[in-house]
Write a protein that binds this DNA or RNA. Structure first.
Lengths: 108, 108
DNA sequence: CACATAAATAACCATATGGTTATGAATAGC
DNA sequence: GCTATTCATAACCATATGGTTATTTATGTG
């Protein structure tokens, strides 16, 4: 039905702590686990678990550097969200479809 | 931070059964609880509870008619999703922003 | 080498969540 | 008026989920 990727993504984004992590990485760029833990209100293991879920959903990616791991957003990871919106809501389908047509015409 | 509406929406869409209900209403138009229950794999009370959560998230709306309640999607309810995508991902911000500019120019 | 720091994992716990059956309240139909 | 139907709500239950405190494994640093 809805595809495993879509499911994982929606579930990953359902938790406010995880959304906060994603939003921070999206706005501020890469950060290591230590930095993400600081001021998050939860423990380091909690952050690591959230990062794991976000990574499994394709929303972030970890880059190991020595004893640190730097995480950053995976921009393409949000695509299922776009597709879902496009596919299942007539309103946004019209709107986004019209926009996509325009873009296509511009590129020609 | 993320706004109560956004939070309610993401949580409502996190469950596959609820997404299925929304998708069905989006594709097939209004339906009453009885019809939505049929073939859903879960009981009528479960469907009613899901509809309640979707309604509280602003994603669907119920219209009482006699002893039936017809539910349909609330197209504007998905807006927080669009806003979130637009705001927190540079990739889609560029893409959607560019598209919105084009639309605006077309309207003038 | 000894020690500190970073992050992942393990083990555990309280609670949120999605489901169930039973019941209630309102409306339709014979 | 009696009965059936539709939906919402109540009460309850099993499990998923998000959190915690160890602990382990690497990697730096004195």
């Amino acid at each position: 039905m809805t595809g495993a990727a879509t499911d994982a993504m929606f579930r990953a984004l359902a938790d406010p702590t995880r959304r906060a992590i994603f939003e921070r990485l999206a706005s501020g760029g890469e950060a290591n686990v230590h930095a993400l833990t600081h001021g998050s209100g939860v423990s380091q293991p909690a952050i690591s678990k959230h990062l794991g879920q976000l990574a499994r959903a394709g929303l972030v990616r970890g880059r190991r550097d020595g004893r640190e791991t730097f995480y950053g957003v995976e921009p393409e990871g949000v695509a299922p969200l776009y597709d879902w919106m496009r596919h299942y809501t007539a309103f946004w389908n019209d709107r986004l479809g019209r926009l996509e047509d325009l873009l296509k015409r511009m590129d020609q």
